[in-house]
Amino acid sequence: MTSPTERFAAARWQAVLRSRPMLTVAMVALAWIGASFFQPGFGGWRHLRYLLELAAIVGLVSIGQTLVVVAGGIDLSVGAIVTVSAIGVPLVTWLADPTGTAPALFILLCATLIGALNGLGIALLRVHPMIMTLAMATFLQGVLILIAGGSAISAQNAVLSWLGNARPGGISASVLLWLLASAIALWLLHKTPFGARLFALGTNPLATSLSGIGVRSTTIAVYAISGFTAGLAGALVLGVNGQGYVGIGDSYLLASIASVVLGGTSILGGRGTYAGTIPGAILLVTITALITMLNASAGWRNILFGTLIMALLLLSGRERQRR
């Protein structure tokens, strides 16, 4: 005989195993095992660690994207904010200190403010999120080219290059940072009133507003968080590459949306979890690595990528369109 508590625990485990994030984890495992058979060295520790380092950057951008999408919005400016951060740190020379902490923190503040500005436009001026963030991306792109020009800017930043390259205990610092940020994101989304408000906002904004919840402040906060995580990812990009240029962050926009959706979060808002986005980001990076290995032309790489995303969506992302 099992006690009710044990049965409850067992049911809970079954629910976890059957949940959407687990499906994505299973897909990642399948992709990794399959790829190791065809490509010796793919499943090696060094290569997997490298994939995780790439996924860490996508995953950080996707934190903000997940929260925004859960709240019923979308942030199309994350790519531009990643670039702002990657170019901005070397430009803030007046704050230069030997460790490089001050410029990094300053740029993170700027990225957060840019996100908050998105939120202000969406909450106060009622501009649709897609338009507001697109316009912000266009605006930032112009400003960046005006400030930085077309050339790459190198940086000597101790903190960021440690974050990008150090491997304390064999585990990459960037992956550790991602783990920490993920824990905070999951706590924020599922254990705090703020997280509950995000789900409410994504499900039914009108009812949320009528329940006396500060829709405006919540909206501004969630876009500010998205700006912050995109800025953090940009700082990491700078740390890994050692230089930034206009356009360096562009690919992270689609990557963040794709990993959010592959992780089972509804693009229509109100449903989802960052726990799915984590394997979603790893899956995305794995697919990209697999396609790169095939040594195909740019055209075929694009076609394969699009087809795989579409196929994975069919497998996992089916949902009746709700209104």
């Binding site: 979308i74 959706v261 699009g306 579409m310």
Partner: peptide, 30 residues
């Protein structure tokens, strides 16, 4: 057809489709 009959969100389907279509264009004319 994919959006309506298979019930996938339009924004994601057309995003994936944009890769396939852009890839096709690159195949025709690199």
């Amino acid at each position: 057809w994919i959006v309506v009959r298979l019930g996938l969100p339009a924004i994601v389907v057309t995003l994936a489709a944009s890769f396939i279509i852009a890839g096709w264009a690159l195949l025709i004319m690199p």
